[in-house]
Structures are given as C-alpha cells and as structure tokens.
Simulated assay, not measured.
Amino acid sequence: MSDVPVARPRIVCLCGSLRFSREFASERTRLTLDLAIVLAPEATEAPVLDPVLVRALGELHLRRIDLADEVRIVNPGGYIGEATRREIAYANALGKPVTYFHEPSPS
C-alpha cells in the first residue's frame, strides 16, 4: 500500500478513431500523470469482421462511458467519425462532460 494519499480519482473515457493510436497513448499518459483513471478501447491486431462482435464491442465501449466522469474525444485535425458521434451523443444524453483533443469547428 502506498503512503501517497489520492482522493477519488476522476475517471476519463477516451473516444475516437483507433487510427490515432499515438494520440490515444499520449492522452492516456497525460491523464494518468494527472492522476486520472483512463478507460479506452483496445486496438486489436486482426480486423474484426463479425458484425455481431463489432456491435458488442461498441456496446462495451458505451459501458466505459457509463463508468466515466468525463469523456475525452481524441480527434486530431478535428476528425470525428460516425461511431464517435454516437458516443458523444450517448455521453451528452447521460450529462457527462465531453472534452476534445482538438476543439471541433463550429458548424
């Protein structure tokens, strides 16, 4: 057990395209050093072709959002894909704060 007291850490769920693996790793490190618990999807080595598994993995990620205090969108260049839009809408419906790696441009 550590002698360093840590209050209940905030839980941050990272969302975004897994093609931005470097940015995900950077945010995970930054948030961890800020003493946050970081939840994020894991990239798989093989492409996931089974549509049932793809849907199940999407639902699993929504459960991460359920656990989070904050949702952080990893969106280099402002890119936000369809799945990430769904996750943002879900977080908003739950009243979770949503922050961005790059602020989206006003539409």
Rank of each mutant, 00 (worst) to 15 (best):
M1P: 00
S2M: 11
S2C: 05
D3I: 07
D3T: 09
V4T: 11
P5A: 02
V6P: 00
V6M: 07
V6D: 10
A7E: 07
R8I: 04
R8D: 04
I11Q: 04
I11K: 10
V12W: 07
V12N: 01
V12A: 07
C13N: 06
C13T: 09
L14R: 02
L14D: 01
L14I: 07
L14N: 01
C15F: 06
C15T: 15
G16T: 04
L18F: 04
R22Q: 14
E23Q: 14
E23M: 06
F24P: 02
A25D: 15
E27F: 07
T29Q: 10
T29L: 12
R30T: 04
R30C: 04
R30Q: 08
L31N: 03
T32I: 02
T32P: 00
L33G: 01
D34E: 15
A36M: 12
A36E: 05
V38M: 03
V38G: 02
V38R: 04
P41L: 10
P41E: 15
E42D: 08
T44E: 15
E45Y: 13
A46Q: 14
L49T: 10
L49W: 09
L49I: 10
D50Y: 11
V54E: 11
L57K: 14
G58T: 03
E59L: 12
E59S: 11
L60N: 14
L60T: 09
H61W: 03
H61Y: 03
H61C: 02
L62T: 12
R63Q: 13
R63M: 09
D66P: 00
D66S: 09
L67C: 05
A68F: 08
V71N: 08
V71W: 03
R72V: 09
R72G: 00
I73L: 13
V74N: 03
N75T: 05
N75D: 09
G78M: 12
G78C: 12
G78F: 12
G78T: 10
Y79F: 15
Y79K: 03
Y79M: 06
Y79T: 00
I80Q: 06
E82M: 08
A83K: 01
A83E: 11
T84M: 07
R86L: 14
E87G: 06
A89E: 10
A89I: 04
Y90W: 12
N92P: 00
A93I: 05
L94C: 05
G95F: 06
G95V: 08
G95W: 10
G95I: 07
T99C: 06
T99D: 08
T99A: 12
H102T: 13
P104C: 12
P104A: 12
S105A: 15
S107V: 14
